[in-house]
Computed example of a mutant assay.
Amino acid sequence: MNRTFRFYKTEEQKWFVDLPEWTKSVVDLEMVEGADTMLDKVSGNKNECYLKMSDEPIKGADRMKLVKDRTNCQLGGGDYIMETYKGKAFNHKLWLCSVTESVFGDLPEVIYVDYPVKSDQKD
C-alpha cells in the first residue's frame, strides 16, 4: 500500500486523518499519543499536512518501526518509533490505532513516510 494522506487540525487543536471512505465514527480518526505531536513537527505547526505512507520502501523516506503490537489488546493498533525526520535522528514514540490495520490490511512492521509538497503548501 502506498498512499498520500491528508491530516488536519481542528479549532480544538486535535489532529485527524482525512479518510473519506471511513464509515465509522470520526472520533476513531483522531491522532493521539504522540501521533499528534509528530504531526505538529512535520506540519511546521500548521493546521494541515500531507504524508505519503507505505508499507513498501520509498527511496529517501523516513521510517516508523513497530515496537509493540497491540492488536490483541483493548486499544488495538501498535506503538511505533519514528526513527528519523527528513533524514535526521528523531526517535519519536507514537501510537497508531486500529484504523492503521484497516488502511494497510494489517499492522506493518515498518511504515515509510515521505513529505509530498502540495500546491498550497511550502516545504
Rank of each mutant, 00 (worst) to 15 (best):
Y50N: 02
G87I: 02
V99W: 09
V103I: 08
T37V: 11
V42N: 00
V103A: 07
D69G: 01
N45F: 13
D114C: 01
E21Q: 13
M31Q: 15
Q121L: 08
V17G: 02
R3T: 09
K88G: 04
G76W: 13
V67R: 08
S98K: 09
F5M: 10
M38R: 00
A35I: 12
Q121E: 15
T84R: 00
Y112D: 03
I58D: 03
S98W: 15
S54H: 11
D106C: 11
M64Y: 02
D55T: 13
K24T: 11
V67A: 01
V42H: 01
V103Q: 07
K93V: 03
K68N: 07
D69C: 06
S102R: 13
A35V: 13
V110M: 06
M64G: 14
L29N: 04
D28N: 11
K65A: 13
K9A: 06
T4V: 09
E12W: 05
C49P: 05
E48N: 03
F90S: 06
R70S: 07
E33K: 10
D106A: 09
K65Q: 15
W95C: 05
K86W: 15
V26W: 15
W22N: 14
F5E: 03
D114K: 01
L29V: 11
V27T: 11
F7P: 04
P57S: 09
W15G: 02
F16Y: 10
E33I: 14
L94E: 14
A35W: 13
C49N: 05
D55A: 02
T23I: 12
V67E: 12
K46A: 12
E109F: 09
D18P: 01
